[in-house]
């Protein structure tokens, strides 16, 4: 899923400084699951904005809303009336949702209330970690199901760098070294030989480096 984190209220206040009627809009997809941009968070953010406006003596009229998925046209269609009644929207969906709204309602400024952080999963209550970087050519079959592109700080393909120590990455003592994990996965399977092979340079043209990506499936076109 896509994992995000709400922006500081002060940063959001700055974005909306010139507008009075604000709609705070959430998404009940990924960002609701990670407690950052769902209906519940909309309520909390809207109250915070109302309160801070009151303290500062700003006139603000803050309304609330949420949809199942801000990244699909059919769901945002239903927001037309609500959006037209306000001067600006603060969307706490991921960057995809914010852009979809901006595309659908080009007259209205749509501000991001969330920092879209990564694609990953919850490890335990309150902890999420990045696990895939959408490199466009998955190599998990060669790395024991552990992704070194997303989980190694240097996206190395041929084993751990010299900074791997006590199972941790040199960049942060809180992050496991992906290659330590890969090593043990193969060792436990009795297949360490798989790590002797030299993995050639990656074709990054399938990743973001190749330009903006798009998938066209003729078989599905109407």
């Amino acid at each position: 899923m896509i994992v995000g984190e709400q922006k500081p209220v002060d940063e959001i206040r700055e974005m909306i400084a010139d507008y009075e009627k604000i709609l705070v809009l959430g998404c009940n997809g990924c960002v609701a699951v990670c407690f950052a941009g769902g209906e519940r968070e909309v309520k909390i953010l809207a109250s915070a904005l109302r309160m801070t406006a009151k303290i500062a003596g700003d006139k603000k009229e803050i309304t609330e809303g949420a949809v199942e998925k801000q990244c699909e046209w059919e769901f945002i269609e239903s927001l037309k009336e609500q959006v037209e009644k306000c001067e600006a929207v603060v969307s706490i969906a991921c960057g995809i949702g914010v852009q979809a709204l901006a595309e659908k309602f080009p007259e209205t400024p749509i501000f991001p209330g969330l920092n879209t952080s990564f694609m990953g999963m919850p490890l335990e209550a309150g902890v999420w970690a990045e696990t895939c970087a959408a490199c466009g050519e998955c190599i998990l079959d060669k790395t024991g199901g552990i992704c070194p592109i997303a989980r190694c700080a240097k996206n190395l393909l041929n084993g751990p760098c010299g900074g791997s120590q006590d199972g941790k990455c040199e960049v942060s003592p809180e992050t496991p070294c992906a290659w330590e994990l890969i090593y043990h996965r193969f060792k436990d399977r009795g297949r360490l030989g798989a790590l002797e092979e030299i993995r050639p340079a990656k074709d990054w043209s399938k990743a973001r480096d190749g330009g903006v990506r798009k998938i066209v499936r003729e078989d599905l076109k109407l």
Binding site: G159, P160, G167, E196
Partner: peptide, 19 residues
């Protein structure tokens, strides 16, 4: 090339040198 015999996993370090 360089190699760090003191990094982990220790048992893999010589194999990485071979690579």
């Amino acid at each position: 090339a360089v190699e760090n015999p003191f990094a982990d996993p220790f048992e893999y370090r010589a194999l990485r040198l071979a690579k």
